[in-house]
Nucleic acid binder design. Structure first.
Length: 285
DNA sequence: TTGTGTTTTATTGCCTCC
DNA sequence: GGAGGCAATAAAACACAA
């Protein structure tokens, strides 16, 4: 059986990969696909896996009696492969052949390198996505806590003022009618607070029409100023913003740079909003 | 030096696509 | 059905602390 991938460490008795060996030492592959395509291995049986062109004639590596050992690619080989990967992380057959020739490697080795490189890139990408999700979550949680606190504060203010109002109305006989229509001393604070609350709701709700806090026709006119309560600079850079184009030292542009979770972030944002509405955590009426 | 953890290279089996 | 991709995994090579 054609192998070219056989390596055996006499010191440990270990064979590379998951090969099964017959008594003769010939590897038998369990899969239907041979490890290295015939066209990729022909006449390469005794060659080590990793050879720079210079090493091709190094007896140390080509002694037929020596067992083949797994060897690392040279920095130059890795550099060229990295550059190629940056250009395009998928490998067409023609490019594979060209690279292999250029590097003095088996085409299969080039393919394997790309395969592993894509796996490494994906792992890094997942790590980045996790960090991004976590920072998004932390930021939203902080905002949520802040809003809950404000909500509680406003509720207690309303209770307090309602009590004051009731007390005044009960003793209203002594108060001139003209006077009763004036705004209570601390009403401006209430207005300010209510405006704040409405802004929050306008920003978060999905079209309740600025409902909620106070009847539009009530004594206090609450107008959405158009300001967003959630300033974008409240989020970490790139946190809620577009994920596209996010790159790092590992993200070499070989892919489109998109996060695997770009739509997940959008969905999470939407879900959070819906959950907020369902729970009514920003509506205190 | 040696034990241990990490990285890199390679294999296998399964899946999808044409 | 073959080719190629990917996940899981093995094992060599490497890094590094004790």
């Amino acid at each position: 059986m054609e192998s070219g991938r056989l390596f055996f460490d006499p010191t440990s008795g270990c064979h590379g990969g998951n090969m099964l060996f017959l008594g003769s030492g010939d590897p038998v592959f369990r899969g239907s696909r041979s490890i290295m395509g015939i066209e990729e291995t022909s006449s390469k049986r005794s060659r080590p896996f990793f050879s720079s062109p210079d090493e091709l004639f190094d007896e140390e590596y080509y002694d037929e009696q020596l067992p083949e050992k797994k060897r690392r690619l040279t920095p130059e080989q890795v550099h060229l492969l990295e550059r190629s990967f940056e250009a395009e992380n998928k490998l067409e057959p023609e490019r594979k052949t060209q690279l292999a020739k250029k590097l003095g490697l088996q085409p299969r080795q080039v393919a394997v390198w790309f395969q592993n490189r894509r796996a490494r890139w994906k792992t890094k990408q997942l790590e980045r996505d996790y960090d991004l999700l976590k920072s998004t979550y932390d930021s939203l949680l902080a905002n949520y806590d802040s809003i809950v606190k404000d909500n509680e504060k406003l509720k207690s203010e309303v209770v307090s003022l309602t009590e004051k109002l009731q007390a005044k109305e009960q003793g209203g006989a002594t108060i001139p009618a003209q006077k009763s229509e004036t705004v209570p001393e601390d009403m401006n604070d209430i207005v300010g607070s209510l405006q704040f609350s409405v802004k929050v709701e306008d920003r978060l709700s999905t079209g309740s029409g600025g409902s909620a806090v106070v009847d539009e026709e009530g004594p206090v006119q609450l107008v959405d100023s158009g300001d967003s309560y959630f300033q974008t600079d409240q989020y970490p850079a790139g946190c809620v913003g577009p994920v596209d184009g996010m790159q790092s030292e590992e993200d070499d542009g070989s892919d489109d740079g998109r996060s695997y979770f770009s739509d997940v972030f959008a969905a999470a944002e939407q879900q959070q909003q819906e959950e907020g509405e369902a729970l009514g955590w920003w509506v205190w009426s």
